[in-house]
Amino acid sequence: MQATSTADPTETTTMTSAPTTAGSRSWARAFADLKEGFGQRELWGHLAWQDIKQRYRRSVLGPLWITLSMGITALGLGLLYSQLFDAAIGTFLPYITTGFIVWNFILGCLTEGTDTFISNEGLIKHLPAPLSVYVLRTVWRQSIMFAHNMIIYFIVIALFWNDVTTPDYSITAGGVPQPGLNWGVLLAIPAFALIAVNAGWVVLLFGISSTRFRDIPQVVASLINLLFFLTPIVWSTDILKDKFGESVGWRDLVAELNPLYHFIQILRAPLIGNQQSWHHWAVVAGFTVVGWALALLVMRNYRARVSYWV
């Protein structure tokens, strides 16, 4: 399994001289990096699997600890918040479980994305591989963990099948009627694909920025808890409407202005038979375009500097 380099003589770097910026800032080289990175599937796929194996080395359950910890967290919070919000456990537990699974994927891409190039310092300086290899390594690792967590989803859906397949069921008492689980669940496939595509630019943009500004990982880590509670994961937007009526006003913006809500909802809604709202897809599509434009711009301008910043 070999990695090929995208560098040319103008980008040759040493430990004593800075990269030449005149010839390194090129859209062609930025896109070539991405192309070669995707072509080296064996490399980043193997590295991602090794990350999982190393994390649970000499463990009896191995990667199943990912599933077990997710299941315990979802069960505990599902039981607690269903009582606090007067919600039926049969519909609220699938809601909160699915939200946690999607959130965990997004959280992993955000937090580990800021550390992508910093944690791969040794490989970047000694392995002539495209930078996109390390981005794909991070996204693929999080995808593997997502697949493990989906085991909990199937168990919960099997236990509460009658509740989530009943037409016009609601997440909380008096909430918006939902159509119930049906063939619309297949929309979860393109939804996850779209989220994974966004994970790519998040890891690339935050990863390069964090090598230059080491405060960014700390800022992201500090905001994570706030973002979690501001996002409808352990609570539902039905609660706002039930408490304040249909005209929620500025309170409705707590969810609508939170981009993470839209990312979670495009995947959670089909998985538990919730009503699809296409404005969520439009928001996510907009972030996809803008996010990749920013990530590619940063990659074009600073790709050659990463090995010096790490």
Rank of each mutant, 00 (worst) to 15 (best):
I272P: 04
I266T: 05
T231N: 05
T231L: 01
D242G: 15
L253M: 12
S247C: 02
I272K: 06
H262M: 10
E256C: 04
K241L: 08
S222M: 11
A282M: 02
S236V: 09
L227D: 08
D252I: 11
I264S: 08
K243E: 12
I224W: 06
T237C: 06
L240S: 05
F263W: 15
L260V: 15
V284H: 05
L253A: 12
H262C: 05
P217F: 04
A269I: 07
I216M: 08
I239M: 09
Q275P: 03
L260H: 00
S247F: 09
W278D: 02
W278F: 08
P232M: 04
G249R: 13
L271S: 02
V283A: 05
R268A: 01
S236I: 12
R251E: 06
I233S: 02
W281P: 01
S222D: 00
V284R: 04
W278G: 08
R251F: 12
A269D: 14
G245Y: 12
D242C: 12
W235L: 08
I224N: 00
E256G: 00
D238M: 11
V254K: 04
I233L: 07
L226Y: 02
L227G: 13
Q275G: 10
F229A: 06
P217L: 00
K243A: 15
D242M: 15
P232Y: 06
S247Y: 11
L240V: 13
W281N: 02
N225I: 14
I264C: 09
Q218K: 15
L271F: 01
A221M: 08
W281L: 00
A269C: 07
P270Y: 00
K241F: 15
V219N: 05
K241W: 14
R251I: 13
T237D: 15
W281G: 00
I272Q: 04
I233V: 11
A269E: 05
T231V: 01
F213W: 14
H262G: 00
R268M: 00
A255V: 14
H262W: 09
S277C: 06
L267D: 05
L271M: 06
L223H: 01
V220A: 03
A282N: 01
F213A: 08
T237I: 14
A221Q: 10
V219Y: 13
R268Q: 07
I264V: 13
D238E: 11
N274W: 14
I266D: 01
A269K: 06
L227V: 11
T237M: 12
S277Q: 07
G245S: 05
Q218I: 12
L227F: 11
I239P: 05
L240I: 15
I264D: 04
V254C: 07
I264W: 06
L253C: 02
W235H: 09
R214N: 13
N225Y: 01
T237E: 14
P270R: 05
I264F: 03
Q265T: 14
H262P: 09
G249K: 09
